[in-house]
Amino acid sequence: MQLLATPAGDTLLVRVDAARIDAAVAIDFKERMRALAEGPWPVVLLDLGKVDFLDSSGLGAVVAVLKHLGPGRRLELAALGPTVAKVFRLTRMDGVFTIHSAVPEALRLRPAV
């Protein structure tokens, strides 16, 4: 699974370059995210714009990353597709994460460093 990470100020923007976060890749996703999150950024913003589908394993992996970041840092989500949003809404995880409808313009325009 490809994750494209771009530091932007106090945020690490991570784009998931895959259509699915499911049981087949959930562990891989979790481990890669943990490795990326070793950096100092207080906010990790996960761009799910390319993700069409996320199952309970994928949801569990996203929650695991949130917990791994610890209380002083935040994992935020952006650009959830309808099926992914449905899973967050049904499980009420939409109340646990800050969810942006799209990646904020400022982050999108920011060049990679």
């Binding site: 309970s56 949801l59 917990k67 049904l90 499980t91 995880m93 646990v96």
Partner: peptide, 21 residues
């Protein structure tokens, strides 16, 4: 049953969503 979410960060469930969904 949906795992409890009103908990501290470290207590958030990482599983148990399948049958709920």
């Amino acid at each position: 049953v949906l795992p409890a979410l009103d908990t501290v960060l470290t207590g958030l469930p990482e599983g148990g969503f399948g049958w709920f969904l």
